[in-house]
């Protein structure tokens, strides 16, 4: 049962991967269209990626807590 729960938590990573890929693709489009704005786009992109990554980190923490505390 716990194993299934951990697997479900892992599904959150799918959304995060899709979102990060989407954001990077859009940023690349923006840079290709306007190369002089690359610095600003980079900064915002890294910030957004960090915030998206925190969702992945939350599922990691939930999985770890399930494994080590609920078992």
């Amino acid at each position: 049962m716990l194993t299934i729960g951990i697997g479900i938590v892992g599904l959150g990573l799918v959304a995060v991967g899709l979102a990060m890929g989407h954001a990077t693709a859009k940023a690349l489009e923006g840079i290709a269209r306007q190369p002089e704005a690359a610095d600003k786009i980079n900064r915002v992109l890294i910030l957004g990626l960090a915030i998206m990554e925190s969702v992945a980190i939350y599922s990691l923490i939930i999985a770890i807590l399930i494994i080590f505390i609920l078992r």
Binding site: I57, L60, I64
Partner: peptide
Amino acid sequence: VSLTFRLFGNILG
């Protein structure tokens, strides 16, 4: 809370 979990999760992972 957000800052804590991000750093903790990354380094613990």
